[in-house]
């Protein structure tokens, strides 16, 4: 649906003689759409684990669905139900979810330049700004291909993620006792899998070690949910110290 709208816009602009908006070549379009749909299916599939965890955490099917439709950001959704399920306060759940969502705002800084959309389409584009759509948009050299990829990926993930959340919520509801099926362990595994691709740098590894220490040391003495928010300190300490020295040294080397 959205890709069709992007098409119409591309053709309009092309008629006006603006080469930057000329329609994409057929094989490029097909390649972009194929890549986007496969990412949509693969990502959407794990909506089933979110749906199951949502109801296992005590949310209704409707509340679990509302998160996938309205919040639409996997990490934040898992965090929110994880903290509520562990008995954390609502404010701790909202704070952690929002802090994890900060990265979407950073993605939007990049994608808004590629997309260059206005009005209602911008409101919709904002909602679709997540890890996967951003990766496809910035991974394409041709801006038109990036734009097409952003919308097709975003819509594909949105549709699959929501259908699979519903399926997971219904199945999870039928399963009963979440512990018996290892669903609480599935939450820990889900966070591990979300963290995994982000651990490429030394700074990231240092942040992880510090964050785990902060969370475990403060957990017995602070309200549930607060230790996770406190891990922000790890990002600030490592971000402001470690890498900074390397970069300054690199600058000196260059000059």
């Amino acid at each position: 649906m959205t890709s069709g709208a992007a098409d119409a816009e591309g053709e309009q602009a092309a008629a006006g003689g603006h080469t930057a908006y000329a329609p994409l070549e057929h094989h490029t379009r097909r390649a972009v759409v194929r890549q986007s749909l496969s990412i949509g299916l693969a990502t959407g599939a794990y909506g089933i684990s979110f749906g199951a965890l949502g109801v296992a955490s005590g949310l209704s099917i409707l509340q679990t669905m509302a998160l996938s439709v309205l919040l639409f950001s996997g990490g934040s959704q898992f965090a929110l139900v994880g903290i509520l399920g562990a008995g954390g306060t609502g404010s701790a759940a909202v704070a952690t979810s929002t802090l994890l969502g900060v990265r979407n705002g950073l993605y939007a800084l990049q994608t808004s330049r590629i997309l260059d959309v206005r009005g209602l389409r911008r409101l919709w584009a904002a909602h679709l700004t997540i890890d996967e759509s951003t990766a496809v948009a910035v991974g394409r050299e041709d801006r038109r291909a990036g734009r097409l990829g952003f919308f097709v990926t975003g819509v594909a993930v949105f549709v699959c993620w929501n259908l699979m959340t519903l399926l997971g919520a219904v199945v999870g509801n039928a399963l009963g006792d979440p512990q018996r099926w290892g669903l609480d362990a599935a939450a820990a595994a889900a966070f591990t899998a979300l963290l995994w691709p982000r651990l490429r740098s030394r700074d990231a590894a240092a942040t992880m070690v510090l964050a785990v220490a902060i969370a475990l040391l403060t957990s017995p003495v602070l309200p549930v949910g607060v230790p996770v928010i406190l891990t922000v300190v790890a990002a600030v300490v490592v971000g402001l110290s470690g890498g900074g020295r390397h970069e300054r040294r690199a600058e000196v080397d260059e000059s």
């Binding site: 966070f191 979300l194 963290l195 549930v224 406190l230 990002a235 490592v238 402001l240």
Partner: peptide
């Protein structure tokens, strides 16, 4: 560079904390 580094490490810190708590955490933070 500093601001963007902190913002990049933010999800790493939060997800690490969540892994730790979901793995070891019990009722009342034990």
């Amino acid at each position: 560079p500093r601001r963007s580094r902190v913002l990049t490490l933010l999800p790493v810190a939060l997800l690490s904390g969540l892994v730790a708590i979901q793995t070891f955490g019990g009722s009342g933070g034990s």
